[in-house]
C-alpha cells in the first residue's frame, strides 16, 4: 500500500503508523459526562468498508494525516490531508499517480465523516 503525504509525496505505507478512527474526537476539557469520556477512551467501531483514519508519517515528515480507506480492500478512497496547525498551508504538488482512486467524487467524501453513526 502507498500513501500520499501532502508534504512528502507518495510513500510506502511502511513509513506510516496507523493512528485510529479519525471521527473520534476528544471531549472538551470541561466535559464532565463520564459516558462521553468512556466512549472516547474505550469504544471504537470495528468498521468494514470505508473509514476515515488518522495516519502518522512516522518515518517521514512526522505529520498527521487523515484519509479515507476501505478496510476490506485497503484502497485509499480520498486524497490524504494534513491535520493540525499546518492543515491550511499549501499542500505541495498533487500525486502524479497514486495507484489508487483519487477521483474528485471520492475526494468530496472526506468532508463527511463516515466513522461515527
Amino acid at each position: 500500500m502507498r500513501i500520499y503525504c501532502p508534504i512528502c509525496g507518495e510513500r510506502d505505507s511502511g513509513e506510516f503508523t496507523y493512528g485510529g478512527d479519525a471521527t473520534v474526537h476528544r471531549p472538551a476539557m470541561d466535559e464532565t459526562d463520564a459516558e462521553a469520556w468512556c466512549q472516547y477512551v474505550y469504544n471504537r467501531e470495528n468498521r468494514r468498508g470505508p473509514m476515515l483514519e488518522y495516519w502518522h508519517h512516522t518515518q517521514g515528515c512526522r505529520a498527521w494525516l487523515v484519509l479515507e480507506r476501505d478496510t476490506v480492500t485497503h484502497k485509499i478512497l480520498s486524497q490524504p490531508r494534513l491535520v493540525g496547525p499546518w492543515a491550511d498551508e499549501p499542500k505541495g504538488n498533487p500525486p502524479i499517480d497514486s495507484g489508487s482512486d483519487t477521483g474528485s467524487a471520492e475526494r468530496e467524501r472526506v468532508s463527511e465523516p463516515v466513522g461515527a453513526e
Binding site: H56, G84, A87
Partner: peptide
Amino acid sequence: LTHLEHLLSIVWPELR
C-alpha cells in the same frame, strides 16, 4: 514524541 505530536496536531491544534 508520537504521543505529543498527536496531541498537538489532533487534540489541541490551537496550542502554539
